[in-house]
Design a protein around this nucleic acid. Sequence first.
DNA 1: ACGCCCGCCTGTAAGC
DNA 2: TGCTTACAGGCGGGCG
Length: 278
Amino acid sequence: MPELPEVETIRRGLDKDIGGRKIRSVDVKSMKPLKRHPNKKHFAAMLEGAKVKGAARRGKYLLITLDNGNVVVIHLGMSGQLRRAANKDEVPKHTHIIINFTQGGNLRFIDPRTFGEVFAVAAEDLGEIAPELAELGLDPVDEPIAWQTFADMLMSRRVKLKPMLMDQKFLAGIGNIYSDEILFEAGLRHDRTSDSLTTQEIRRLYRAVVEILHDAIKYRGSTLADGGYLDIAGQPGEFQEHHRVYARDGEACRRCRTPIVKARVSNRSTYFCQQCQI
DNA sequence: ACGCCCGCCTGTAAGC
DNA sequence: TGCTTACAGGCGGGCG
């Protein structure tokens, strides 16, 4: 659920909200998200007493940098949320970690399905502890991709477009929702192979990747019917109102009025317009 | 090299 | 009404 636009919205909130704050203490309610730590103390000790420098993002990963040289890495998985709260606020179910600030208030990591992960690491050990971060592909929002690089990546492989867009080693940050929206915008079917695209189609796909992600960030991400994604203030996004295919099966295509089709592709819901996407 | 499936997990909703 | 089942999907791993 949280893909690049949602994570970026959270990053901006964090940067503004907790930047400069000092960490007084850390409550670990459950070790579930701390897969890479032997115990609670090992994690807490890397945070306590440090001041937050800022929040960065790589694909779907959040990186909170501290002034003691450590980095807190957060992946929200499918149902992870970060929430700013006051000390007296009720602690909801599935709250795994609470980071308390000296100025008052705290930041909570909440995750019902526990696919998310949190770990702290010395910045210089990041590559060793988290090789998957080093393997991430280009971030289409963080670093503008050269047109030729994009075309080369497509032409050098024979893969289906949807799995390719969702491959974090190719481009970082795109998941199930935005791959469908990007493919609609580009007018391409999910099962077209990467090396079958004409120059014009490559250009359309390239443009769609950048446009859809920027647009989604502008509307602060997508909050689906299950309310799985909320920003750090607990506010939903609005991009779901602009979805043209995702979760719109049976509804009329906004471009041609043909009903949007839902298919199950490699065990994932895929939405597309049979008329507009070739 | 690539496609596809599974397991991880829980809340929600549909179906019998 | 109450149970069972399917579904939501990010990601790593395994298999064909």
